[in-house]
Design a protein around this nucleic acid. Structure first.
Lengths: 204, 204
DNA sequence: AGAAAGGTGACACAAAATGTTCATTTTTTA
DNA sequence: TAAAAAATGAACATTTTGTGTCACCTTTCT
């Protein structure tokens, strides 16, 4: 039986090395490419890769943005997202970009093996507990790009007035957006929203 | 030569499994105990462990609090902290608790091997780039417990007035503290301070 | 003892953020 | 097309926050 050719994209070196070791020990897996950053992932991609294990939180870019170039180079490639953030909205966004599997980093190796096999056979794989959450909150709206931009600006210490000007909207509108963010996240203050967003990995 | 007996405390399962695999493959290392949580770490500790690789950011408690019980059970045990936060103050705090090595999770396995060997021989090991930072900012004060409490309260959405009352200080003093926090972190607004603190792992 | 340094509380003022309402415009829907 | 819904900008009052000053107290050092 042909071994499944795997690429690892992950900036935590030991994690990547350990995972590579575990995968290579298996008979039907073979790690054929690795990358420790967004930039290196573009360089090291090989069209003969069957499955990519992709860390979303890369230091030099959003890992999800790698989906497009990967699929351009090999439309059949299957991508599995690995992340520490188990945010439902993130999963939905990843799926839209063509990610076929979603596994948190606290998963066991056996589960990653299962995910690789499932996805390679053409199915999708979402980690069980996350799947349950997907079903439980079917209409979690998440934050729009616009809203994320606003939160990130605040996290950089900009005032509401500055942000409104930069985004070419009135202060009224900006405030309405902020209010919307708080409502979506179910919090009372902007500060709390910031903390929640940070925990979910929505701001850096 | 006697193999070095190692315990792994780490809640990310794949990470732990991969690291165990890498270590066991080496001739002079032997993983004799593992734990995926604070509680389990206390259960699974064995007095014959030479070196503990300890993740600080455990879900059910501060990993550093394990140092005392570990050393009580085996005063000769050497502890190496593994973390994603490369905060200088955190290193200092860890060293005070008896941690003998400090390695970020983005390190390579070779570096972890080096750290284990160094520490086992009685030396201390701090990851090179972090060591440089330790020397560069010798007087980074970090945040006091009081200051951390304040930031966490704000992250929970409490107003300054509420926090002041809860801490039995005047609004003036609280504002002074907030100002001090911003100065320490080198930022302008409280929101920015919150974001920085979150990035450094100072608030949960 | 006396000076200096650091922490605290009270007050005042400016700046920013928040709550609210209303008119206008755009988009959606019937 | 007409009505309804949603989004925007503006204006206002109110609250919260940021900043500075002053007096008072304790601790520390000379």
């Amino acid at each position: 039986m042909e071994r499944i050719r795997i690429m690892l994209v992950e900036d935590h070196n030991v994690f990547r090395e350990g995972l590579a070791k575990l995968l290579d020990t298996e008979e039907n897996f073979q790690v054929v490419a690795q990358a420790d950053s967004f930039a290196r992932a573009l360089e090291n991609f090989r069209p003969d890769v069957d499955v990519v294990l992709l860390d979303i939180g890369l230091p030099d870019g959003d890992g999800l943005e790698l989906c497009r170039p990967f699929r351009a180079a090999n439309p059949a490639v299957k991508i599995i997202a690995l992340t520490i953030y188990d945010d439902v909205t993130l999963i939905r966004k990843a799926m839209e970009k063509g990610v076929r599997g979603f596994v948190p980093k606290y998963a066991f190796f056996e589960e990653i093996k299962a995910a690789i096999n499932m996805v390679h056979r053409g199915h999708t794989y979402v980690y069980p507990s996350l799947q349950a959450e997907l079903l439980r909150k079917p209409s979690d709206p998440g934050l729009s790009d616009q809203e994320t931009v606003i939160l990130q600006a605040i996290a950089r210490g900009e005032s509401q007035k500055e942000i409104a000007e930069k985004l070419y909207v009135s202060l009224s509108t900006l405030r309405r957006r902020l209010k919307g963010i708080c409502t979506k996240l179910g919090v009372k203050t902007v500060e709390e929203a910031l903390a929640v967003a940070a925990k979910k990995g929505l701001v850096r």
